[in-house]
Simulated assay, not measured.
Amino acid sequence: MSPIDRIRSYADELTALRRDLHAHPEIGFEEVRTSAIVAEHLEKFGIEVHRGLGKTGVVGVLQGRPGKRRIGLRADMDALPITEETNLPYRSTTPGTMHACGHDGHTTMLVGAARYLAETRDFDGTAVFVFQPAEEGLGGARAMIADGLFERFPVDEIYALHNAPQGPHGVFQTRAGPMMAAADFFDIRITGRGAHAAMPQQGIDPIVIATGLAQAMQSIVSRNSDPLKAAVVSITQVHAGAAYNVIPEGAHLAGTVRTFDAGLRKLVGQRIRELAQGFAAAYGATIEVDLRDVFSVLDNSAEQARAAAEIATELFGTDKVDADTIPRMGSEDFADMVAAVPGAYAWLGATPGPGLHNASFDFDDSLIPLGAAYLARVVERRARV
């Protein structure tokens, strides 16, 4: 029996688990209920469980036949601060929080893979199951690594999988080299001088400065960066004022910078600071820029990306595998794990629907047996190398 068929035999149980996690989402580093449920399932399968890595992370260790190889599998557990707008029977019961990225599904797929491997034990060496907190920009991978993840649970390779709601359904996508972009988060705080809205000459209007700076920042990609190198500057928050007739004292811009190239990343940050300094001088305001390295470039190791594609081809067929997919400008902190250990990240296409981080998103449960089978087969194949 193929791993897909075997896992499909208990897919209803996995789907129930996924929907329970969906109904009870938890923000990064607050995944207390989620990690407890994961640990309980692993213990039920006879897997050695370690809790509390990186605050709320869980690691499971499963011994197969005698062997020296150790293969890591990772899933993310956290939800997003988004109010769900579906009418699903298992919709979020936590106000302002939902699984809008499918981490409930990723966690379930890894639980399914762990169950399969625990029941079959058809692999050499050791499987290490890493359930990571706080992937959504809060540094969960870095927290687990700093907590000794790879010292306490060394692995030769590590793999992860993410759903792709744009589809095509069941198509596995990976590549060697850069897979996802680096991301810097920024906060720009503008301090002017408040005044009556009818007497603007008495103030220094931070809103005028903020809107001008926001427009100027869009010129960084179009006029300062090499057009053959990808970069995205997105302002995602604008905060200022609280009354119709008051020019406020301050304004706040926030957003992200996405790049693949280290030199371009440095250039974009430098230009943001230079523009801010210029606007501050021109208007007589004070502008503070806080630019933070949040995600590294996710760079798949060549051998592991090739192996991932071969395993997916075995399971899904040649027509369902794209082994040289286009890199994406989104970011993922699995990047820090593959920077420490050889590994590969992949996307698995879902039935097309609302995109990631959308209030109407829901994970495609038909992917659970496919993703779980892939993760399990990675251990079976790569532990024998």
Rank of each mutant, 00 (worst) to 15 (best):
M109S: 05
V294R: 13
G137I: 01
V341L: 00
E85F: 00
A285R: 05
R273T: 15
A183I: 11
L315T: 07
P133M: 04
R70D: 11
A372D: 08
D205H: 08
A308R: 03
E84V: 00
A127L: 04
F361A: 02
H103V: 02
N224D: 15
I190H: 07
A281R: 14
A182R: 08
I27G: 01
G167P: 07
A11P: 01
R306F: 01
D290L: 01
I71Q: 06
V341Q: 01
P248L: 12
I158H: 03
T83P: 00
L356V: 05
Y374L: 14
F129M: 10
S35K: 09
S9K: 12
G203M: 12
G343M: 12
A183H: 02
A197K: 03
G148R: 10
D319Y: 01
D226W: 02
I287P: 00
Y10Q: 05
L42I: 09
R152A: 06
A164Q: 15
V38D: 10
P66W: 08
R382H: 02
F185P: 00
S9N: 13
R328F: 03
H106E: 11
V232S: 11
I235N: 13
R51M: 01
L21S: 09
P3C: 13
I47C: 01
I190F: 09
Q202A: 12
M109R: 03
S222I: 08
A383N: 04
L73M: 10
T93S: 14
I71H: 09
F260M: 01
V130P: 00
A23R: 14
V130C: 06
R382T: 13
E310L: 14
H99W: 10
G67H: 06
E48Q: 15
I188Q: 11
V289K: 06
G203E: 13
H239R: 14
R33N: 10
A23K: 05
S219R: 13
V379T: 08
G349Y: 09
A141I: 00
F279V: 07
L253H: 04
S2F: 06
H239L: 13
G349P: 09
R152C: 00
A254H: 05
S301E: 13
N358D: 15
D156W: 03
A36F: 00
A323R: 05
Y345N: 00
H252R: 14
D336M: 11
L14D: 07
A100T: 03
D324V: 08
A376T: 02
T256M: 07
A305K: 08
E84A: 04
V338L: 01
R74L: 09
A231S: 15
R51G: 05
G371P: 04
D319P: 03
I145H: 11
Q270A: 13
V155Q: 12
Q173H: 09
M1G: 15
F185L: 12
G57Q: 10
A216F: 02
V378H: 00
R258T: 08
E157N: 07
E136N: 08
G67Q: 06
S219P: 01
T256P: 13
G317A: 12
A143G: 08
A231R: 10
D187M: 02
E43T: 13
L253A: 05
T259E: 02
A134T: 07
A276D: 08
A216E: 12
L267A: 06
A376R: 02
L80W: 03
R193N: 07
R121T: 03
I7P: 12
I287W: 06
F150C: 05
Y244K: 10
G170K: 12
T174N: 07
G148S: 10
A113R: 02
E26A: 06
Q215T: 15
D362H: 07
H196E: 05
